[in-house]
């Protein structure tokens, strides 16, 4: 199964079923880099024995590279960060299908979310949960003022052997020179995917952890972002995001909460 998906993902760029080029399809190289200073207040789902809140000022870099139908977006400045690699297979303007690569869950280890922290006694001995490296398809369609997206991805290059179904809707409100983005949606994590992150195997048992094999799980989220051009190369950006996992998340001995939220505000220089 994995090998088949790897072969398909490698062959996809050669397929190039590009229909009528639309407004956002230009056959040329384009890039954009921004560097910003942000204040970030983040609370992740609480792992036992850890403080999962982070409040700090930080520098963040966002990069966008596009060439023909390929695009690469890294956005440490937006919410929880991450990178997206995609390839537009079909784009009619009204709807389209992309081949996508990305990660859908944060990694953690016996040190919590940050590898530089000390080992957490309650988590001592658990194997490292590497982030997934998922590949799949994204179907998107304009529905009224919203852009609706449905994604199905399989963790081709990771260890979960699981898949994720992700749906979301995004709307942009232009308020004079302000941009307000509203986004909400849900995730469905397959049993294997969820088990990789929140299951506890026999070899990971310690005085705090008991064996646990979860089934599939879901989460829902809503987020918004506000942008304003304060000068020709400067943008003020602020955003907030909330995510809640389904009740079964709390059944895992690894976690104490099923909420995540982040607030950030700052300015960035756009090259």
């Amino acid at each position: 199964m994995k090998k088949l998906l790897i072969i398909i993902s490698l062959l996809l760029p050669l397929y190039g079923v590009c229909e009528e080029p639309s407004d956002d399809l230009e056959d040329e190289f384009a890039w954009q880099l921004s560097v910003g200073a942000f204040y970030v207040d983040m609370t992740m789902p609480e792992l036992i024995g850890t403080d999962s809140t982070f409040k700090h000022g930080t520098f963040l870099v966002d990069a966008k590279i596009e060439y023909k139908n390929f695009y690469l977006n890294t956005h440490s400045g937006d919410f929880f960060g991450g990178s997206d690699v995609g390839y537009q297979i079909i784009n009619t303007g009204e709807w389209g299908i992309d081949a996508i690569y990305g990660s859908y869950m944060l990694p953690f280890s016996e040190r919590g979310y940050h590898d530089s922290d000390d080992v957490v006694p309650e988590l001592r001995g658990i194997k490292k949960r590497d982030q997934d490296n998922s590949i799949g398809f994204s179907y998107y369609r304009h529905v009224g003022e919203f852009l609706a997206v449905a994604e199905v991805v399989y963790d081709v290059f990771g260890d979960t052997d699981g898949w994720v179904f992700h749906v979301e809707a995004t709307r942009n409100f232009e308020l004079r020179n302000w941009d307000l983005w509203l986004n909400f949606g849900a995730n469905y994590y397959s049993s294997n995917f969820h088990n990789y992150f929140y299951g506890v195997s026999e070899t990971e048992i310690n005085q705090y952890l008991t064996p646990y094999t979860p089934g599939s799980s879901t989460s829902a989220f809503i987020q918004m972002q506000l942008n304003y051009p304060i000068a020709e190369d400067w943008v003020f950006s602020s955003g907030a995001s909330w995510l809640i996992g389904s009740q079964d998340t709390l059944n895992s001995p690894l976690v104490r909460s099923r909420h995540a939220r982040v607030f950030f505000t700052g300015v960035k220089y756009v090259f």
Partner: peptide, 17 residues
């Protein structure tokens, strides 16, 4: 009239985790 972003991104994808 000037613009900050000269590149119109193909996608505005949102990443949670």
């Amino acid at each position: 009239v000037n613009w900050v972003h000269k590149v119109k991104t193909k996608k505005r994808r949102w990443r949670l985790f």
